[in-house]
């Protein structure tokens, strides 16, 4: 990503925190501005981040962090977006209406981390068997008395 694009991004993304020393530009957004700013990244002519190729979550034990990897197919630049989420009541606005790939990716995060995506059209279990709700395998405090693998 060129310096001009980064300067333009810094201007556009208000109240965002930029991380230093990362391989790709990494920025943490504020929850209230999140959806609006993500839509801007997708539609802005100078940015055109039209390819959400990875969306995941990290459990930091005190809070969760959503991580989004974006790319522009036009300009081939990449950006990492982060969003801190409350661990006890994780709620994030869905992005499935902005990028269609978010539909499946969010369903995976929902079952593995228990994050609720507000406005998701089809938030059901995708990988885990029916009736699993409530236990989130990829959280750090997950315990399964029968099948726990300890290596």
């Amino acid at each position: 990503m060129t310096e001009e694009v980064i300067a333009y991004l810094k201007e556009q993304l208000k109240e965002a925190t930029w991380e230093e020393g990362t391989a790709w530009p990494t920025v943490a957004l504020q929850p209230l501005l999140f959806k609006e700013q993500m839509q801007l990244l997708r539609s802005d002519g100078n940015l055109q981040f039209d390819y959400l190729f990875n969306e995941t979550c990290i459990d930091w034990k005190t809070h969760l962090t959503m991580v989004y990897h974006l790319r522009s197919m036009q300009y081939k630049h990449q950006l990492v977006i982060k969003l801190a989420v409350d661990r006890n009541q994780p709620e994030v606005p869905t992005l499935s209406d902005v990028w269609q790939s978010a539909n499946f990716l969010e369903r995976e995060v929902y079952e593995m981390f228990g994050v609720n995506f507000i406005g998701h059209p089809d938030l059901r279990l995708l990988i885990l068997p029916d009736g699993w709700e409530g236990k989130n395998p990829l959280r750090k405090d997950f315990e399964d008395p029968i099948n726990m693998i300890r290596l």
Binding site: F53, N54, T56, I58, H69, Q100, N103, F104, L105, E108
Partner: peptide
């Protein structure tokens, strides 16, 4: 495109690892 995303806390094991698998997105 296969992506490997490693979050390290400085130890000998990854803190979190995520595989962005091509088949998952293609299937969607």
């Amino acid at each position: 495109e296969l992506g490997v995303y490693i979050v390290s806390e400085g130890g000998t094991t990854p803190y979190r690892i995520k595989f962005r698998s091509p088949g998952f997105s293609n299937l969607s």
